[in-house]
């Protein structure tokens, strides 16, 4: 059964298992300068491969944009 992830406020379903690295690939943002928070905690870039996502995880995926 698919797991449900809330990514940037929107729910999405993925077949398990899926790592943070896999999710970044699914989102089409591989190689971009991003940062990810999972359930309120930062996921360091060095841990994308080993961090497996679980049903109900809440993720924030951010970039830098123009601002003052």
């Amino acid at each position: 059964m698919d797991i449900r992830l809330t990514i940037n406020g929107a729910e999405r379903r993925f077949p398990p298992p899926i790592t943070v690295r896999g999710l970044v690939g699914e989102m089409g943002i591989e190689g971009r300068r991003i940062a990810i928070e999972r359930n309120g905690e930062i996921v360091p870039r060095s841990r994308y491969d080993e961090t497996t996502l679980a049903d109900g995880d809440r993720l924030e995926v951010v970039v830098a944009v123009g601002g003052g």
């Binding site: 990514i7 940037n8 406020g9 929107a10 999405r12 989102m27 089409g28 943002i29 591989e30 190689g31 971009r32 991003i34 940062a35 924030e60 995926v61 951010v62 970039v63 830098a64 944009v65 123009g66 601002g67 003052g68």
Partner: peptide
């Protein structure tokens, strides 16, 4: 220079 931090648009062109 200042920058803001915002959610990435899902499906955005890499």
């Amino acid at each position: 220079v200042t920058v803001a931090i915002r959610r990435v648009n899902i499906g955005q062109d890499a």
